[in-house]
Design a protein around this nucleic acid. Sequence first.
DNA 1: CACAACCATAGGCGATGCCTTTGGTTCCTG
DNA 2: CAGGAACCAAAGGCATCGCCTATGGTTGTG
Lengths: 309, 309
Amino acid sequence: MVVSVLSLHQLTCFLATYEHGSLTAAAEELGYSQPSVSEQIRTLEKSLGVQLFRRVGRGVVPTTVADTLRPHAEQVLAAVDEAQQSVQEVKNFEKGTIRFGMFGIARLYGGSRLIADVLTRYPGVRVELIGQNSTEVFEDLRRGRLEAAMLAVSTVESEGMTVTPVAREELVYISADPDRTASPVTAHRLSTASLVMAETTYRAVDSTRITLRQMLHETGRNPPSRIEVEDIETAVELVGMGFADSVVPKGAAQQLLPRLAPNASWASLRPRVYDTFAVVHRSGAILSPAARLMIELATKRIQAIAEPL
Amino acid sequence: MVVSVLSLHQLTCFLATYEHGSLTAAAEELGYSQPSVSEQIRTLEKSLGVQLFRRVGRGVVPTTVADTLRPHAEQVLAAVDEAQQSVQEVKNFEKGTIRFGMFGIARLYGGSRLIADVLTRYPGVRVELIGQNSTEVFEDLRRGRLEAAMLAVSTVESEGMTVTPVAREELVYISADPDRTASPVTAHRLSTASLVMAETTYRAVDSTRITLRQMLHETGRNPPSRIEVEDIETAVELVGMGFADSVVPKGAAQQLLPRLAPNASWASLRPRVYDTFAVVHRSGAILSPAARLMIELATKRIQAIAEPL
DNA sequence: CACAACCATAGGCGATGCCTTTGGTTCCTG
DNA sequence: CAGGAACCAAAGGCATCGCCTATGGTTGTG
């Protein structure tokens, strides 16, 4: 890219001079002294290699080159104005994009209402709720592509990340067999169950599985998943068909069981086990107003469903 | 007009940084040191009141505000480029307007061929040949609206103007009566003639009349115009009809008599009297290339018809 | 765990921009 | 026609800006 030799200040002085036909008047309008404007014009003429004004005793008269330059100079300054204005509009949430990360099943925790919250307050903005899966969201945070996110985490310890828990959500056992949900499910019973688990692509980092692994650690076994699927709705449907049981967040169970597995029921684990919903961002980051807005709204929505911390 | 707080340099650094995702790489591209670019970005962020990049250990990542700013920044720099380019095009006679002053009857002295000369050499330019009348041209020169002109002058003395004669043109007596053009016309005969004179609106400053006044000064009489008209063609036609005689530049007589007054003929004055064609511009002016071009071409055309000096 | 990549900070230096003062020119007016 | 008013140019001084080098801190990688 060619580094331009002319400056916005020169163009401003040029336009003011053109319109007034006088360096003195231009200087007065711009709040500068007459020699300053004179110098700017001279510098501009020198760098362009052309004469822009004829000095004619009283006042100055634009040359035809100045006639040519004027509309271009106006366009430059107008573009600058637009640039500044558009940034301010983004700053004021009148326009622009607000990008925020959410855990994968945000749809079951008021994700659409969260977006509605934002759009109601700020009708002009675009909203991007990133949350295909927790791993990618975490990676986006780490790489700086995302500023902040609301995630389901199994631990608040994370290298270089600040994790602020805002709510906890019980993990419950669901089954089509009423006997198995008649009483709280112990680690031992869980370790012998036949389970269908969702989020198979990210099973290594899925917070539900990690939490279950911690629970089963004392039994010396891993969670015994018999079926692996991608999304929680499919898992619940399979539970309803009786192929397996599952462990899901309680809010998801309450929403999905009536719709997808009406014959199934749920029970707590013993001891109770919780997923944690937390605001996550890079340590040391100064959060933008947009991020703070999303954190505030998302926290409210989450705490209306899960248990506030 | 609001004086902008941001600079083209900042926008250039911003774009380079945006494209590379790195201050170091941007600095390398722009030929600056890394801290310089870093400072520009920081200043820009501060003046806009927003964060444009998140610093993420290795490299920087644009925020959504930066996404918004980018197209505007590009437009600003593109407009600057266009401005510079258009000025250069005017400088190189590829575009723009060339404005030049000419005496009123330039049409009889190759005016259209002069314009053809310019357009042949520089097909892209606009040409404005200003010359409704000498007074206004002179006023335009004085006020700086015109840079230079080719005028018919009665004297080379003029306050604040540099007058450079390039050719002289004899003033001749024309008449439909062959007797009156059988021999050179003396001042005495001229003072008793019945004349039709053109350029009546500007009769006070018309160079032909001024020249005649000087010639008649010794006789103590003013030029005896019986009829006053605006344009020389009408005057010649009236001469052809026998209503009056006239005094016109020789080139005009040679061109107009056969066409408009075939029965009329011309004779020299005694002593011979001349109009002077001269290049006129403000004293002390540094002439632009465009003006020099017009002066060169107009001089050639005039000298091909009138007598070079 | 050490190295490489990258950004931030600090200090120094030259250039830029602005100001005031002054001089010269043009134009108007008494 | 002479004096004054309006205006631009030039010069000198001062503060700020922009850029550089050197250095330190942090992150990601072999």
